[in-house]
Design a binder for these strands. Structure first.
Lengths: 334, 334
DNA sequence: CTCCGGTTTGACAGCGCTGTCATACGGGAG
DNA sequence: CTCCCGTATGACAGCGCTGTCAAACCGGAG
């Protein structure tokens, strides 16, 4: 039979409650007692039963990460970051892919919460922006941290100044000499889509270049939408000399379509992306992009959440820095 | 306060135990009672408390997926498949990234099992091949299903005939007219690395082509190792006319290195991969590869596991079919 | 009408832990 | 030496559910 807390208590000559105190790092245990208990725990290789603990304490020591994201590499990194933070504090992580468009979306999350009782949630976009969900979470007093939410007020989590980053990378294109710069937009329901578009517009405006509607085409952050967008742009009578894609997946799609058109990158067309996920280094030529520290962001969001859960402060909305990665897909126009 | 089973029982005018029976689809409940209880459950929006259930029943209704894999897209697909199977049967999934090389690897898994008490595990390569782990699992009587394990005997799960698939794709290269065909091997601690190499050798041998040691270079399934391997191969005095890479990530690396050398694919060099993960369609030119139904494999492995857990049969080692995807990266040699 | 066996239902304990509260301890002040 | 108060420890109940086993019920055979 497995070792229970009671067994540890007996072996250490203390009461179960004292063992519990030691395990949970509670105050008011004599140091010598603490050490003795710890030794027995190690000797017997005791591991607490999480369900029992959860039932008794009304904490699950679990964080659930919710997502509905097309980019698996971005997501994996965020997830890894969340896991890292969880591990540090002996929390465990539950993952839940969701369809934010589904009619029963909120109810599904509700069920998850009722069943598993996670102590808190980490929301990644676009889950972090679903008004219906956020409202329900507030109603139920569920604590959550958001990664890159549209609305940062009264929310804890992590974000990056995406608009400024987008402005900078487009400015880089302008400095190279480009004037006809297109933008393949990502999902505008994501904050990311909106901010990156705003940064693009701002860069052009700052440089006195008019924003030409034909050069702004809709996509959805997927590779395929990048291909479509590029096809559309390259078919224009006066095609752009540079394309700023909403993210690296789309930028890779742009590269692909450019190949299809027999264009040489970056000589015939400059391309840049956003995120700096692995594919940006795996396509030819490597993509100029903005580095988004996704893993750090996952970790930080989860840390903020855990701080609040453990009563260690109110939790903050932390800003992380971006970094331009100038690689091989951008050059002066011919 | 949240709705408890007792509340449902009171509202339905039955005992808690009867509600429990209905919720768990147990026999010996009159149909009319069952319906009444179900109606109340729906009306009160009752959700069982998983920790309580788990504590009382000694089942956690949780499956843990263990991995240590460099390819995030492969993994995400497998994970999605596992989740799909879990959802169907109202199980939940816990994920756990691991480092199979770490000295405390087995102990970490041990802790996970003791703490969360998953009813079963889904192991993905290379976790599925770690002898120390498997032994511990047997000792502890932990039930698991493996995805593509090296040893299929006495194990449930799912596999694909990778050797035969590799043989077929290399044969495809031979039929195109290639004679100097190289292979960039994946990790040979993975079954995948071994099988694909074996298939490569067999295809050459079957065609009466000698296996040239210089044309077989070691990699580790990563993009970078594909780049390295290709650089090495292309620097040979008599470079190959075709390279079969251990997986799509490596094949993408080969393409990248070929670009670096100014080679035109597939005219100067044919390249093929294995797995059919998204990147194989996102590079230029699109990769000829072998489709591995990763999502299905995750689902099937988990289904086998759940069958065993629920006493519905002994569980099997299921073979899934592969499919050659002939795309744009292969052509006759010049 | 009684008896019998299977079916349906319920009473009750207990899963392994923690919260609450009472008690014991121990050292300094008076 | 006694009293007091903060610190350390333990007794006990109970978290929400299910396993076990006993009881009630029901329909058909005798």
């Amino acid at each position: 039979m497995r070792v229970r807390l009671e067994d540890v208590a007996r072996a250490a000559g203390v009461s179960p409650k004292t063992v519990s105190r030691v395990l949970n790092d509670e105050a008011n245990v004599r140091e010598s007692t603490r050490e003795r208990v710890r030794a027995v725990v190690a000797e017997l290789n005791y591991r607490p039963h999480l369900s029992a603990r959860s039932l008794a304490s009304n904490h699950s020591y679990t964080v659930a990460t919710l997502y509905d994201n097309p980019s698996s590499s971005y997501l994996t990194e965020v997830q890894d970051g969340v896991l890292e933070a969880c591990d540090q504090r002996h929390y465990s992580m539950l993952v839940r892919p969701l369809d934010t468009e589904a009619p029963d979306f909120v109810e599904r999350v509700d069920t998850l919460i009722s069943a598993h009782r996670p102590d808190g949630l980490v929301l990644t976009p676009p889950v972090s922006d679903h008004p219906g969900l956020l409202q329900r979470l507030h109603e139920r007093n569920v604590i959550y941290a958001s990664v890159s939410p549209k609305q940062r007020a009264d929310t804890i989590g992590v974000y990056m100044d995406e608009q400024e980053a987008a402005r900078e990378i487009v400015t880089h294109l302008i400095q190279l000499g480009h004037r006809r710069i297109a933008h393949a937009i990502g999902h505008t329901v994501h904050g990311a889509g909106t901010w990156r578009l705003a940064g693009y517009r701002q860069a052009l405006t700052d440089a006195g270049i008019p924003v030409e509607p034909a050069l702004v085409v809709q996509g959805d952050f997927s590779f395929d939408s990048g291909v479509q967008a590029a096809r559309q742009l390259l078919a224009l009578e006066r095609p752009p000399t540079a394309i700023f894609a909403g993210n690296d997946d789309m930028a890779s799609g742009v590269l692909w379509a450019a190949n299809e058109h027999g264009l040489s990158i970056p000589n015939d067309l400059s391309v840049c992306g956003f995120d700096d996920v692995p594919i940006s280094r795996q396509v030819w030529p490597t993509l100029t992009t903005v580095h988004q520290p996704a893993r750090d962001m996952g970790r930080i969001a989860c840390q903020q959440l855990l701080d609040v859960l453990r009563g260690q402060g109110p939790g903050r909305m932390v800003q992380v820095p971006y970094a331009l990665k100038l690689r091989a897909s951008t050059a002066p126009p011919r």
